[in-house]
């Protein structure tokens, strides 16, 4: 199968889906109240993006996502590396962390609301909490993915600990690290959205949940498109970087 064939087929499927979205409500195949035509949604999206309330909500959500990410990644990474590097700590904490990791984090949301209220802090704390676990697990895997053979080789050539870190650990872990970044951002974004939709006075998640409750379908779908575009754009950027630095991966 040639590459452009695949691209062509993908484009055709996308056109088909979008076309169906536009035409099915217009032809009365589905209820336009439930699924407004694509063009109506796009017009709504444009109008919504121009509203100061929506712009403010976007800004707040973006801030929450960024702050939570900045808190969660270093904490999770440090804990993950510590667990991988110190077998003693690993033996003690690993099972516990795996147990907690398997619990759906959303059941802790009411506790976060009790502790932090329903403002900015609660969104950040909850999202950082969910994200830190993902980062921790991936960071452990990243360190453990560095083969001890590589370290032995470097040592045999007289590499200093700093050289081993820079020349062996970092390049060896790079693909896993980028993957971690990508996955953890998905969890982070999800965390903020859930917290905003559950209890909040602002943010995109709050708007979407309101639009849904008020049966404002064009607005709801406009919100879905907006979020999807941002999430996909971030994901693809990191994936592009990943592909670029893992050409050597077999």
């Amino acid at each position: 199968m040639k590459y452009w064939h695949i691209i062509l087929i993908r484009a055709a499927i996308l056109a088909l889906v979008l076309g169906a979205w536009e035409l099915a409500p217009r032809w009365g195949l589905v209820n336009p109240m439930l699924l407004p035509p694509l063009s109506d949604v796009l017009v709504t999206l444009q109008i919504q993006l121009a509203r100061p309330t929506v712009q403010e909500a976007i800004l707040i959500t973006a801030l929450e996502v960024i702050v939570a990410f900045i808190i969660a990644v270093p904490i999770g990474a440090a804990a993950g590396v510590a667990i991988a590097e110190f077998p003693y700590a690993g033996a003690i904490f690993k099972p516990m962390l795996f147990y907690v990791f398997s619990i759906p984090k959303s059941i802790f949301l009411p506790m976060f609301i009790l502790i932090f209220g329903i403002g900015f802090q609660q969104k950040v704390a909850y999202a950082a909490f969910t994200t830190a676990f993902v980062v921790l697990m991936s960071a452990t895997a990243a360190v453990e993915s560095v083969k001890s053979d590589y370290i032995l080789v470097a040592r045999s050539f007289g590499a200093t600990p700093l050289q081993i870190l820079r020349r062996v650990y970092v390049p060896s872990m790079m693909p896993v690290l980028l993957e971690t970044l990508r996955i953890s951002m998905i969890f982070n974004f999800t965390g903020v959205m859930i917290a905003e939709m559950y209890a909040s006075r602002t943010g995109i998640g709050h708007l979407i949940s309101n639009w849904g409750e008020n049966f404002q379908m064009p607005q709801l779908f406009a919100g879905v498109i907006m979020l999807s575009v941002v999430a996909i754009a971030f994901n693809e950027t990191v994936r592009y970087l990943e592909a670029r630095c893992s050409t050597w991966r077999t």
Binding site: L152, S156, R249
Partner: peptide
């Protein structure tokens, strides 16, 4: 400690850096 000027070590094939 290792001294690459005196001793070179050759490991199994898997020890090349894949990157």
């Amino acid at each position: 400690k290792p001294d690459p000027e005196r001793v070179g070590v050759i490991f199994q094939e898997a020890s090349l850096f894949p990157w």
